[in-house]
Simulated assay, not measured.
Amino acid sequence: MVAPGAHGLRRAGPGEDFWQYRPAHAGDTARSIDWRRSARSDAQFVRDREAQTAQAVGLWVSAGQGMGYSGAPERPAKGSRAQLLALALGMVLLRGGEKVGLLGQPARAGRAQAARLAEGMTMAPTAEDDADAPPPEVLRPNQRLVILSDFLTDPAWVEALLARAAGLGVGGVLMQVLDPDEENFPYAGAVLFRSFSGALRHDSRDAEGLREAYLARLAARRDWLRAQAEGAGWHFGHHATDHAPAQALNWLYRVLGG
């Protein structure tokens, strides 16, 4: 599990965790001397602590029209599940003292920020096309980002985003959220496939005959996403909307600290 809240800066300063022993300097008080360590040598030593800071985490959920898809009434739309995961993750991190914000907006700590996150997600307009992408120019050094999308459209933006992230020292997670019908392609016979925006259409007389090629392309897309993420020092994961969201939330929470 990731330890939310303060994160070490790998230097001496205010904090709770031990950092290193150093020889005592002029100006160090008697209270700052570690007498047990000093007793093992002829010198006096001070026990330094590691400087810590709250981690800033940015959340981005795709608002592309394709995220509105659900293959069955009992399942949530992909966008709804992605928002649930992002909001739940944000609340857990806020509870641990992290600074969290929607990508492009200030990251803040505290209970009030949870309401801002929820409002920002629910009020975000749907994109005009099947896909959208986070703007790379809003990235800031040393952030952690969580990007949730179906990644089914042109993925060129992913490469551009990760290239900029790597240059800024930004780490993060790519999470692909799909409906189980998109995972398994259970179609047969004559099927008209169309994107939510209507920009793409394919009229198939033998949908079952497309299954093998579709699944191969989905696997190739995931391999590409994983390679891109790992090359930038990020993580890649995927989640189907018929699975419990807690499983994906636990994974996101764990790898975000890695």
Rank of each mutant, 00 (worst) to 15 (best):
Asp48Ile: 06
Gly120Asp: 11
Asp242Leu: 06
Ala3Thr: 15
Gly167Lys: 00
Thr153Ser: 15
Trp60Ile: 01
Tyr69Ser: 04
Val46Gly: 05
Arg222Ala: 04
Ala219Gln: 08
His238Val: 03
Val2His: 10
Ala88Asp: 11
Trp234Tyr: 05
Asn184Ala: 14
Gly90Gln: 10
Asn142Pro: 15
Ala240Ile: 01
Gly97Thr: 05
Glu183Phe: 03
Tyr214Glu: 05
Glu208Tyr: 08
Trp251Asp: 01
Gln247Pro: 07
Arg49Trp: 08
Arg95Gly: 14
Glu230Gly: 12
Val46Thr: 12
Leu161Phe: 05
Phe236Val: 03
Ala56Thr: 10
Ala160Phe: 02
Ser32Val: 09
Ala107Gln: 10
Ala127Lys: 01
Arg37His: 08
Asp223Tyr: 10
Asp129Trp: 11
Gly58Ser: 15
Leu174Cys: 09
Pro106Leu: 03
Leu87Asn: 09
Pro186Phe: 09
Arg221Cys: 03
Gly90Thr: 07
Phe193Glu: 02
Tyr214Met: 03
Ala213Glu: 12
Ala6Asp: 09
Asp206Phe: 13
Gly79Glu: 01
Ala246Gly: 11
Ala51Met: 09
Tyr69Arg: 03
Gln113His: 09
Trp234Thr: 03
Leu84Met: 12
Ala63Ser: 13
Ala63Ile: 11
Tyr21Asp: 09
Gly101Lys: 08
Arg144Asn: 02
Gln143Asp: 13
Pro106Cys: 01
Gly172Asn: 04
Gln247His: 14
Arg254Pro: 03
Ala88Pro: 01
Asn250Trp: 12
Ala114Ser: 07
Val61Ser: 01
Gly233Pro: 12
Arg164Ala: 14
Gly68His: 07
Phe45Asp: 07
Gly68Ala: 14
Val177Gly: 00
Ala43Gln: 15
Pro186Met: 13
Gly189Pro: 01
Arg49Thr: 15
Arg49Glu: 14
Pro186Cys: 08
Ala30Leu: 15
Ala220Val: 08
Thr29Val: 09
Val46Leu: 12
Asp181Tyr: 10
Phe185Gln: 02
Pro4His: 10
Trp157Phe: 12
Ser38Val: 07
Ala124Phe: 02
Glu137Ser: 14
Arg221Lys: 13
Met91Val: 15
Pro73Arg: 11
Gln55Phe: 02
His235Ser: 11
Asp206Asn: 13
Ala118Phe: 10
Ala219Trp: 06
Ala232Cys: 11
Ala227Leu: 13
Arg37Phe: 00
Gly198Leu: 05
Glu208Ala: 15
Ala220Tyr: 14
Asp129Asn: 11
Arg226His: 14
Gly71Met: 06
Ala246Gln: 15
Gly110Val: 06
Ala56Ser: 12
Leu225Trp: 05
Ala30His: 13
Ala131Tyr: 02
Trp251Val: 07
Asp42His: 14
Asp179Gln: 01
Arg36Thr: 04
Arg205Ser: 10
Ala248Lys: 00
Ala229Glu: 04
Ser149Tyr: 00
Gln176Asn: 05
Phe45Cys: 08
Asp242Pro: 03
Leu218Tyr: 06
Gly231Thr: 12
Arg47Trp: 08
Met1Pro: 11
Arg31Asp: 14
Asn250Gly: 14
Ala127Asn: 02
Gly5Ser: 06
Leu148Ile: 05
Arg108Val: 12
Glu182Tyr: 00
Val61Asp: 00
His7Glu: 15
Thr29Ile: 04
His235Ile: 00
Gly233Asn: 12
Glu208His: 13
Gly79Phe: 01
Leu93Ile: 06
Ala12His: 05
Ala118Tyr: 04
Asp154Arg: 02
Met91Lys: 15
Leu145Asp: 02
Gly27Ser: 04
Ala163Gly: 13
Ser62Asn: 07
Arg221Met: 05
Val158Phe: 02
